[in-house]
Nucleic acid binder design. Structure first.
Lengths: 144, 144
DNA sequence: TTCCTTGTTGCAAACGTTCGCAACAAAGGA
DNA sequence: TCCTTTGTTGCGAACGTTTGCAACAAGGAA
């Protein structure tokens, strides 16, 4: 459900300027239902227009993350992905073997987050959060 | 409690060769009680001997992580740290504002890990695991 | 509408990390 | 002991990402 104008409004309300580059990048990640790497966003940009600089793509994605409009995920092996945060926090199970990513809901771990807040007086903001391990298929075929 | 010879033996038992470079890197991270970045390891190396190549430092740290002798931590803002895994899994609370790192024990979140395993049939291996949020001091001084 | 302020962009350089490759050397066998 | 095999190293190039800076342009004021 893309709401590009909502994202743009939020940015404008925060005092940021709306540029053609930002509009295009927001449109791309809002319309793409899944998470994307910066390089994938770049490719979509190139397909549409005379290429935006890659530094601008990174800066715009960072801007969205900083303002809570998108999430940044560490997919392991050094890869980073982004997605709009329409559905609240995203928590991922990343398989160390095959790299598959399973999305879970925050409520599945809320008990532990509450416990951490109580014990350590630490305000958990798990907007991007990955648990690394082995998915069922990979666990069945290896033992380490 | 450094047990360099234990680490070296484990590597040899796995079929890896023991080189002066590996001995030195293992000695450095085993004797340093806290987590270190690759660059910090490199500095310690330089202080002791005619510099080992940085690529060798990264390769050795990766080797230790892959063989369960060390852990790799994502400290947020793109920084990565390493530490020997003498005390079992390390779970960190990383403050998004000041970057402070608080170590917690696995038992604090074991209930959620068990729940994830049950619900998603996913074998959690949280040897390196970070929860991002705000520490008490930073939470008290800002609201976002 | 035009002007001005200042946030944003593109570029190029730099960063931390990884990779390919030829030279080297650890470890086992003769 | 020396030889052989092959895993490891150092080097340089490349990767993905971030940064500094001068030129540009969004958006408000006149």
């Amino acid at each position: 459900m893309p709401h590009c104008h909502t994202y743009l409004k939020r940015l404008r309300d925060h005092g940021y300027r709306i540029t053609p580059q930002r509009e295009m990048i927001i449109q791309i990640i809002a319309h793409c239902g899944r998470h994307m790497s910066a390089e994938e966003v770049m490719e979509k940009v190139r397909a549409k227009t005379s290429s935006i600089n890659i530094a601008t793509v990174y800066r715009t994605l960072d801007l969205l993350v900083e303002n809570g409009l998108a999430s940044r995920f560490d997919l392991g092996n050094g890869n980073t992905a982004y997605a709009t945060s329409e559905h609240g926090p995203h928590i991922h199970l990343v398989c160390k073997h095959c790299g598959s990513v399973t999305e879970i809901t925050e409520s599945d771990i809320s008990a532990s987050l509450d416990r951490i807040e109580d014990l350590y007086d630490f305000d958990c903001r798990p907007y991007h959060f990955s648990v690394h391990g082995l998915c069922r298929d990979c666990r069945d075929t290896r033992t380490d």
